[in-house]
Design a protein around this nucleic acid. Structure first.
Length: 494
RNA sequence: GGUCGGUUGCCCGAGUGGUUAGGGACCGGUCUGCAAAACCGGGGACAGCGGUUCGAAUCUGCUACCGACCUCCA
């Protein structure tokens, strides 16, 4: 029985969907004004894991992950200019050109990380009408006010009728004393009121007509409008990074509740941050490393390139609610660990069954399920897979045997948990690295040539011609091949 | 300053009040022409000081240090 940690209650809860057999989940996606960095990979992979596991459990899941392409004001630069607009102006492009460019690149990175596309990926810019309607509802219910063409949430009024701050554990008094001075404060009744609709300044290039002004929706409106549009007034899961808890998700709760009169989300889930030297990796800290830089090894902190699967494995090595500290050293360790798993899988596929099972294999499936049920404990699933890898290697070495039934089950569990749920590309057809069975068809010539060389080496070895044998191995090793001798043959990978 | 969270062995990173987490690195052994891989074995840990308990890394109090949020942020 799946348990997930609900930020609202600060404890693990059994997951009960609203509609039997169906799950609706909404996850805050990227603001497409820059390349995705390691921090973006965290929620993408975390909620991909959840999505995959829910489907494995037999749920029909509607997974909505938005693309933020309007809103999100810059607080410092010139009177709240839109990030997308700013980028567009700097790069002399149409705003939607910027959006399309970075959206494409985001998709490309996500595919590399084997993150499944969501069921619906709505753009904020494509839902202006829904957002205006949502703002109107809040106005109609009296929880917002118009001021100089902008619409603000009347937080004080809302807080009298509904609990405000329950997600982030704040109360209004705290917020009063904490809120700093920002632009546009003069138009607001209180500093903690937030914009639902903002009148566009003349230099602002992205704006739409509305009953109140030519402008654009407030920072948090898109998630309320699009979430409820596609998942209903109440839905199961809302996810995102911990840094969005306040004010973004808190504001979203208030907006939705003000418009609809009741809460929307049953389970709030938040992934923790990726840190670098103990500090959060983020745009504001100027310490982020883009995913492309990881894949290409183009960053001073990276000792070498790291494959997308290494990144995915690295993220899954830690529980999603813990911070993960990035270091090149940690990634190299992850890379080796992943290679070990990959090797074990390749061997599992080659294994020949014996008459009976003479090795302890335990109930791998049950253990993995138990770990996943416990708030998506991927590190424990990996632990069990590593234990299983040891058993596989023992059989592969001929030191134990496994029955046909146990072998079939073991293969099925690896398929289910390693490949389908953890989303690791272990199979030969799509592995991140090339092995002897993993080169594509048009590389058959290369494969043949390597095999030929190694056949020659095998002959040399049989003739105890160690000079030739070592020369071939050393030369191939130099070129990046890994050569492993087996009992009466060889294995190689690139 | 407020709110919340963290502090585990050389590194990364799980964890239940009493039983080996796991991975990487390292050391020793087996196998091998030598390597590599694999397998076996090994050392080492729970920030500090109190409290509860038969027993605490795990519960509780305090201290120290670190971080997140409080402003756009995954």
């Amino acid at each position: 029985m799946l348990q997930i940690y609900n930020t609202l209650t600060r404890q693990k809860e059994f997951f009960h969907p609203i509609h039997e057999g169906h799950v609706g989940m909404y996850v805050c996606g990227p603001t497409v004004y820059g390349d995705a960095h390691l921090g973006h990979a965290r929620p993408a992979i975390t909620f991909d894991l959840l999505y995959r596991y829910l489907m494995h459990l037999g749920y029909k899941v509607r997974y909505v992950r938005n693309i933020t392409d309007v809103g999100h004001l810059e607080h410092d630069a010139d009177e709240g200019e839109d990030k997308i607009a700013k980028k567009a102006r700097l790069e002399q492009l149409e705003p939607m050109e910027v959006v399309q460019y970075y959206t494409n690149r985001y998709h490309h990175d996500m595919e590399a990380l084997n993150v499944l596309p969501p069921s619906i990926e709505p753009h904020a810019s494509g839902h202006i009408i829904e957002q205006i309607a949502f703002v109107q509802k809040i106005l109609d219910h009296g929880y917002a006010y118009v001021s100089d063409g902008s619409v603000y949430m009347d937080v004080e009024k809302f807080a009298k009728d509904f609990p405000y701050g329950k997600l982030s554990g704040r109360n209004l008094e705290d917020i009063v004393t904490e809120t700093r001075e920002l632009d546009g404060q003069a138009e607001k009744k209180h500093s903690y009121d937030f914009a639902l609709w903002k009148k566009a300044a003349p230099e602002h290039i992205m704006h739409w007509p509305s009953p109140w002004s030519e402008g654009f929706p407030g920072w948090h409106m898109e998630c309320s409008a699009m979430g409820t549009k596609y998942l209903g007034e109440e839905f199961d899961i809302h996810g995102g990074g911990m840094d969005l808890m306040f004010p973004h998700h808190e504001a979203e709760i208030a907006q939705s509740c003000a418009a609809l009169g009741h809460d929307t989300v049953h389970y709030w889930m938040h992934n923790n941050m990726i840190t670098i030297a103990g500090k959060k990796m983020g745009k504001s800290y100027h310490n982020f490393i883009t995913l492309e830089q990881f894949f290409k090894g183009e960053h001073e902190l990276l000792s070498k390139p790291f494959s997308p699967m290494t990144i995915r494995f690295f993220v899954l090595m830690a529980h999603y609610r813990s911070t993960v500290d990035f270091s090149s050293e940690a990634l190299e360790a992850a890379e080796k660990g992943y290679a070990r798993l990959q090797e074990a899988y390749t061997r599992l596929m080659k294994l020949q069954p014996g008459a009976e099972t003479t090795i302890e294999i335990g109930d791998l499936r049950a253990k993995c399920a138990e770990a996943m049920d416990d708030d998506l404990n991927s590190p424990i699933v990996l632990q069990h897979l590593f234990d299983s890898a040891r058993a596989i290697n023992t059989v592969y070495d001929g030191k134990a045997s496994i029955s046909p039934e146990d072998l079939a089950e073991l293969r099925a569990v690896w398929k289910d948990y390693a490949i389908d749920i953890l989303g690791l590309r272990l199979g030969s057809e799509n592995a991140g690295e090339c092995g002897e069975n993993q080169l594509s068809a048009n590389n058959n010539a290369v494969k043949g040539a390597i095999d030929l060389l190694l056949d020659i080496r095998l002959d040399a070895k049989r003739n105890k011609d160690w000079a030739t044998s070592d020369r071939i191995r050393n030369a191939l090793t130099e070129l990046g091949f890994k050569i492993k001798d087996t009992k009466d043959g060889y294995e190689w990978s690139l």
